[in-house]
């Protein structure tokens, strides 16, 4: 059985949770197994996981899950996997998923690979693929333990509806009490998807000259319902908040559309964005290295080009 740990937020399944379930479903299909989901705490839309391939949804409810604690969550998921005799455990490669993978794999004496991008090869051996060396290469890794734990890179598969709503089954497991204490949560108020989940991203670099010019980036992002991002020097100079920084030392993303404005395309920047499906580069320097990684390039002054693009997209939508 393939067990998928589904991440939720404020009692609802996150986009990454639906993706992980569908990934688990496609893996289970190949292996002739069932795909089942696990949620921790109360989740109002958990039955919808059935649409993406979960044949049943297990639920554990406990006050121990009120905030994310690596030991409490890791222990509960590991116990559930043992109890349900899962042979593959699928997580999201999110903040919490990255925190959990080592814990769960250790407790299940499992080999693990994180940030997997393709459905595993399952004939004879269990082989997964992921990007390595700043996305300059891919590696295929074989997991050779009876139980396998993997985490799925966001936006790496397209979800589709393959089933009907699943029923919730409560799972009886002793839940630990956390040794950590939550003091506060600071969420950005935003009506667009957080960067790791965003399907469209508009990103600005040092070419914008200063934070006072960011309206150009934001206007384009608004017409596209896109999330904004930036290069590292932009975050380091506090022109933009640090959570917008993408690249090697920032967040790695793979949206459908990445528009890079006034960014030169240094290898460390590309490391975090060159898995985007479509890349648009706007730069006045025809030699900017980013053009080599682009699908569409515009050589021109961003202060003129970007407002024109914003207007063009606006009139397209009307």
């Amino acid at each position: 059985m393939v067990l998928v740990f589904v991440e939720t937020e404020s009692g609802r399944v996150r986009k990454a949770g639906f993706e992980a379930v569908h990934f688990g479903y496609l893996t289970a299909q190949k292996m002739g197994l069932s795909c089942q989901a696990l949620v921790l705490g109360e989740v109002s839309d958990a039955p919808l996981l059935g649409l993406y391939g979960a044949s049943s949804v297990h639920q554990i409810v406990s006050s121990g899950f009120n905030h994310f604690d690596n030991q409490v969550y890791g222990d509960a998921i590991s116990k559930a996997a043992l109890k349900l005799a899962a042979s593959v455990v699928v997580l999201s490669h999110s903040s919490n998923g990255k925190s959990l993978i080592g814990n769960i794999a250790y407790h299940l004496a499992a080999g693990s690979v994180s940030a997997v991008t393709d459905i595993p090869e399952t004939e004879n051996r269990f082989i997964v693929k992921k990007g390595v060396y700043s996305s300059k290469a891919l590696v295929k890794m074989e997991i050779n333990t009876p139980v396998k734990v993997i985490s799925v890179q966001g936006n790496s598969i397209q979800t589709s509806v393959v089933g009907t709503e699943a029923s919730l089954q409560s799972l009886d497991i002793d839940v630990l009490q956390p040794k950590t204490e939550l003091i506060s949560v600071d969420k950005l108020k935003s009506n667009v998807a957080p960067l790791p989940e965003a399907e469209r991203v508009v990103s600005g670099g040092r070419g914008l000259k200063g934070p006072e010019n960011w309206a150009i980036v934001e206007d384009l992002a608004n017409v596209l319902h896109a999330t904004t991002a930036c290069s590292r020097p932009v975050a380091d100079s506090d022109w933009r908040p640090h959570h917008e920084h993408v690249g090697q030392t920032g967040i790695a993303i793979r949206p459908n559309l990445y528009i890079a404005i006034g960014i030169s395309g240094a290898i460390q920047h590309l490391a975090g964005v060159n898995n985007s499906k479509t890349i648009v580069v706007i730069n006045k320097d025809p030699e900017a290295p980013f053009f080599k990684a682009a699908n569409y390039g515009v050589v021109g002054d961003l202060f003129e080009v970007v407002p024109r693009l914003t207007a063009a997209i606006k009139s397209l939508s009307q």
Partner: peptide
């Protein structure tokens, strides 16, 4: 060992960039 490297691959070569006239952003939108 619980996992082992089977092989590495280099990513498929990207198609050459398509340049758009900076005066014709309607074309890029299209």
């Amino acid at each position: 060992e619980k996992v082992k490297v089977v092989e590495h691959e280099l990513p498929p070569a990207k198609k050459a960039v398509q340049y758009i006239d900076p005066d014709n952003m309607a074309e890029l939108a299209r």
